[in-house]
């Protein structure tokens, strides 16, 4: 753990440029994962209730 943390520091946060880069990459990844996972959880909670669950009954 300690080794991982110091590696993280030395690789990502020691320089301002890499820190900023990390933040932007992190923001992108974070948005993707949160969007995807919340959508999955949401669809699971509401399965059978949303339009996408019933539309196959009405599409030819």
């Amino acid at each position: 753990m300690a080794g991982f943390m110091s590696t993280t520091y030395n690789l990502l946060f020691k320089r301002t440029s890499t820190t900023i880069f990390t933040i932007f990459v992190g923001a992108l990844l974070c948005e993707r994962t949160v969007d995807y996972s919340t959508q999955a959880v949401f669809d699971h909670i509401n399965r059978g209730k949303q339009w996408k669950d019933i539309k196959h009954n009405y599409e030819k």
Partner: peptide, 16 residues
């Protein structure tokens, strides 16, 4: 249905 859970949608089949 939309009140039973915190994240529940409306029951769209019922809306239709």
């Amino acid at each position: 249905y939309h009140r039973q859970g915190f994240f529940n949608t409306l029951d769209m089949a019922s809306v239709r």
